[in-house]
Every structure is written in C-alpha cells, then in structure tokens.
Design a protein around this nucleic acid. Structure first.
Lengths: 344, 344
DNA sequence: CTGAAAGCGCTTACAG
DNA sequence: CTGAAAGCGCTTACAG
C-alpha cells in the first residue's frame, strides 16, 4: 500500500540504487540526478520502510533506554527529564528510543530487556542505578552503552555525570560567605555514585574553607545508604540537631531529603533559615514551592539526556575510541531557605 | 553473526516454514516435531530477527507512546507512571514501546512523531492532552489509537479514564460526614477533560448532599483554565477565603494545586485542618509528605497504562469493534489535612 | 556517476 | 502435518 523505493526509481527513471544513495546521503550522485529524484521523493512524500532498511543494512536505528522502575516513577521527575532529553536528541540521528524498565531484583540474563536479547537496538543508554549484572551482560555482549548518573567500579564505560562536587562546594561557599560555619550534611555516602560524590563534595568543600574539623565530626552528618526519601531527611535533622547543638545549616543530598528535613524543623519550631539554613540538590519543581522556598543545586537534566545520546552515537560510530566521561555543570539557586543573613 | 531460522531448520532437519510456524504458535505442527524443534530453539537461544519478521509480516510489533513534553517532565510523575504501566503490559504482547514527546505548538503534519510518518508502529497510545490536530491526523491515517486521560469532542476513540467524578464525590462525602458543609473548589473547569469532570464532580457531589446552593455560589470556587500549578492553588484559596468567609474546606483539582493552597493558608496563619480542611487529587508522593499530610484521591496510574495497552491491542486485533472507554476506579486516601473532627 | 543483482532473515500462501 | 519457493523493501559491493 505504501510507496516504495521501486516506485520512486521508476518514476524518476533511475535505479533503486541511486534512490537509496540519495536517501542515505552516501556515495556520489550527480547534482542533476539528485535534484530530480529528490523532487519526486518530496512530491510523493516517500519514506523508506524502516524494517527493510534495518534488514538490509544490519542496523536497527533504535536506541534502548533502560531505567529502573522505581526511578522512572519517582516523583522528582529527575529521570523522566533525562528521558526527555534523550528522546529530543535521538531525533537528530533519526533514531527511535525503545524504553524498558528493570526491577532491582532483575534475573540476568533471563529477564533482561527484550531488545537486548533480540539485538533490536544499536546501543543503550542506562539511566540511574540498575543491577550490576545487567551492566556486565551488556558489556560482555559488546553492545555500545552510555551510563547516566551511574558508575560501576573498574569498568570502562562512557558516562554522563553531573558535577556533584562543584554543586556542594557552591553550597558550602554560599553559607560561609554568610558567616555560617556549623554546617551539617544529611543523606548517604555510598548508596549511589552521585550520593558519594555529594558527600565527598561536602568534605572537601568544608576542608577548603578551613572547616575540615566539622566535616570530620560525625555529629554533623547523618548518612543512610538507602534510596533517598523525605523520611531520611526528617530523621537526619533530628539526629544531627541532637548531636551537634551548634548547628547552623544543613546540606541535604537532594530535594526530597531536604523536604523531610524542612518538615521536621518546623515541627521542632525551628525557624528556617534564621535558626537553621537548609540547602537541597536537584532543584526540582517542588524546591521552589516548598515552605520556605528551598535553595538547591540546579541540575540540567534534559541536557544530560542529550549529552548521553550524543556520546552513544559517537561510540556506535567508533567503537574503539577511549571511554569518555562528560561532566555536566550544575549551579546553586539561592532561595529563602538559606538566606540567613540576607546577603544573596 | 547471529543464528538464523535457517540454521535452526537445518539442525532440526525440518524446513524453515516449520520453525516459523512453531515460533509464532500458528498453524498445525505435530507434537513430536514441535518438541524436537523447540528444544533446539531453546538450546541455541534462537530469537527471530525483528526487522526480518516485520518486513515479511508487515507488522512492526511496535507501539508508539505520545506525550507532551511538559507532561512527561512534570513533577508529579503522573504520566511517567502511566508510561511505566504501558511498558510493563507491552511485554505481554512482545511489543516495544517507542516514545515520542510532542510540544503544544506542534506543526501538524510537518512535525509529527517520526514513527507516525514512517508507519513504524502498529498503534499509538496518547497520554494526556496533545494538539487536537495530531489526534485528527492519526485518525485520518487510520492508525489504531487509545487515549489516556484525554478526550477530543465528537470523535470516536478508545479511551482510558479515571473516575474523576467518583473521586470528588468521595471527598465531598468524607467532609459532609464530619459536618463540614461550606466546601469550596479550586482549580479549573475547562482546561482538560479531567479537570472538567472534577469540577462537575464537585457540583453533583454537593448537589447530592443538599449543598447545591453552595456549589452554585461562585464565591466558593476559583477556576482558572490553565496548566495546574501551586500558584493557582495559592491565589485560589486567597480569593475564595475573601469571597466566602464561612469557608470550612476546599477541594483542589490536584495535589500540586493543593500544595500552593496549603502554603497560602499557612502564610495566613490558618490552621489546617481546624480552620480549613484541604483535599487534593492524584495522591502523588508529595501528598503524604506535605505539611500537614494531604488527603487526596489515589489514582492507579500504572494500571491506567496497562489498561490502555490492552485496549490498544484489542483494537489492533479487531479494527471494527466499537469504541470503548475504560474507567479506572479511584479512592480517597484520608490524611491529616481533612480530619477536622477526627472521625475518619 | 549509475545500474543490475544478490542478499538481508523472516512469513505465508500454495502444494502435496 | 510439512516443504519449496516467492516475496517483503531495502542496501551494498561490484561492474562499467
């Protein structure tokens, strides 16, 4: 029913090879022929059938996007924005994005995303943490892959990351500039690479400002190696408040944690930011509408998805190139929750 | 490099037709042959190449998932949960989900999702509102389609919806049982079908409880036909509070709106729920961690995605069947924000 | 610069 | 119940 390359070739009075060459932009075709054929292609609105193209060229034009089910449906919309970026960028390569969610208890290799088994993709983007076995499987199968906001030790894989350390450094400096020095940290240290980096950022940032003794004092930190949640924030601030009575400010590993922290502080009748300043990380929608509005480190999520897609395409083009890590810059957004001395 | 149907046929000593028949589960194959061949298929872990299958059968095995970019990246994770459900269900049909976001200012048909033009999908799921022109295009092209949480007037399309009216009715009754009668509504009336239904639910629910006069009194409602936001909630409650001084409770069109409402009430030093009870809709993660925790109507989002995929597959099977609407039940979750008289 | 032809890996009437 | 064969719509060496 659709129009085929044969039809176009016949109408244009050329061979199908020529039409194919023109469609793909490869090989040499004279300007005249090209123009003539292109006109007919446009006129008939011809689009090559993907499956035929795939079969003949042994390329699928599909990119797999793998994400854990809990991450995709988390409220921060963090990963769905990354997904959005990947999809946007895919268009520039005329690629389709195949989505597959995986569970944490994935049974590799029995239960892996189908497109991996069927080889229906040219490469995959993995966003956030997934079972290590899955990563190893993809590597073993030699399928081009880019990780976003995830790392697996000792494995050479292209990665897109945000500059977690710089983000926390910005937060620390913003506080120090206000003469706030008793700064705590709530979150985790090891559950996820980004979480680890944020904690390290806290340590090094404090160190740089001559506050290493505080950062090393465990009274000032609350670390739980688990999926982040508002609950951790609430428990964390209670705990730190008890152990470090001098506390003036707290940096939370992300906005969700900060939310719980804010609530707990309110229940304890602490004024924010007068008694305790609070800073989050991610800068999601809720940060700006929290009470008070939350200072947070903005992460350009869409850009991360786009960067990953670009990197993957480079990898597919040139499978031998050295592994790269793209670090996406982040930026502190100051709001009421951390403006203790009202100097922005 | 991969193993093909030919290899399997040769090893098993049968024709490729027989292998194909077994793989697809169609036609008649004797038990003996079936078993023998199946064993070899399993042993070699053979999986037919999708593109070849597509080309030969003229079916793609792909389902398109279309969603507006703003919806996908909204913080409620409402639509990403729906997407999750669709993907989960797709596995049961061995279908792949192709994602495409569209912008509100989509230029139809120039800029429509590529898989629509290329006919690379067997059908599409459209989640949330998208430009009407796009819906009309899909209809005109006779591509099987299911809408989720969206309607286009006068067009016959399979649809999955949540029971918005029932949700609001539950909220009204929950309040009335506590002898709360001065109930307002904040949100919109016309921007989106769900919003309209929720407003209608407010009107009919109030009517049923003998409170029609209040529902008809414009002092008790604040309606803005725009994308929902916390800001609308804040402005809404200020406005209603001014015009309806007797106000005891307010139902918000969704949780995001309720969030803004909560904040504004706090700023005005109103106690929640003692002075004003507040109820949201959607029951997203933030509802339970708001301050105070927000009563809200739970919407089973994953189930909606699954239902849509099932419905679409039915439609693809039988293009002539009558259009169906699947209404997914919802349920009020009572939390502190609406427990004025402490009788749950 | 262009064309003829083989081939990609399946499915599906059609015979038998 | 099973096999031989055509065909799906492309791409890609290979000639010329």
């Amino acid at each position: 029913m659709g129009i085929t390359i044969k039809d176009i070739a016949q109408i244009a009075g050329v061979s199908t090879s020529t039409v194919s060459l023109i469609m793909s932009g490869k090989g040499y075709v004279s300007g005249d022929t090209r123009e003539k054929v292109q006109k007919i292609i446009d006129e008939y609105n011809y689009r090559p059938l993907r499956s035929a193209r795939q079969l003949a060229s042994n390329k699928t034009g599909n990119i797999g996007f793998i994400i854990s089910d809990v991450h995709l449906s988390r409220s921060e919309a963090f990963y769905s924005r990354i997904l959005l970026g990947a999809e946007l960028e895919a268009r520039n390569y005329d690629a389709y994005l195949l989505l597959s969610t995986v569970r944490a208890d994935l049974d590799v290799p029995r239960n892996i995303p189908r497109f991996l088994k069927g080889r229906d993709i040219d490469g995959v983007i993995v966003a956030g943490s997934v079972p290590h076995d899955l990563i190893k499987y993809i590597l073993k199968e030699n399928i081009p892959m880019v990780l976003i906001d995830f790392k697996v030790e000792n494995l050479k894989i292209d990665t897109v990351f945000m500059d977690n350390r710089s983000g926390i450094h910005q937060a620390v400096e913003h506080l120090v500039k206000q003469n706030i020095r008793q700064i705590g940290f709530i979150g985790g240290s090891n559950y996820h690479p980004s979480i680890r980096e944020r904690f390290e950022g806290y340590q090094t940032g404090m160190e740089k400002n001559g506050l290493g003794n505080i950062a090393r004092n465990k009274d000032y930190t609350y670390l739980i190696d688990d999926e982040t949640s508002a609950e951790i924030g609430a428990k964390g601030i209670s705990s730190v408040l008890k152990s470090a009575s001098e506390l003036e400010a707290v940096i939370c590993v992300n906005d969700t944690t900060a939310l719980g922290c804010l609530q707990q502080l309110r229940e304890q009748r602490k004024r924010i930011p007068e008694d305790i300043a609070v800073i989050g990380f991610d800068d999601n929608y809720y940060a700006s509408v929290m009470h008070p509005p939350l200072s947070s480190i903005y992460v350009p999520k869409v850009e991360m998805g786009m960067a990953a897609m670009k990197l993957l395409m480079e990898r597919i083009e040139n499978r031998k190139q050295l592994c790269q890590t793209r670090v996406i810059p982040v930026e502190l957004v100051v709001r009421e929750s951390s403006m203790q001395n009202h100097i922005i």
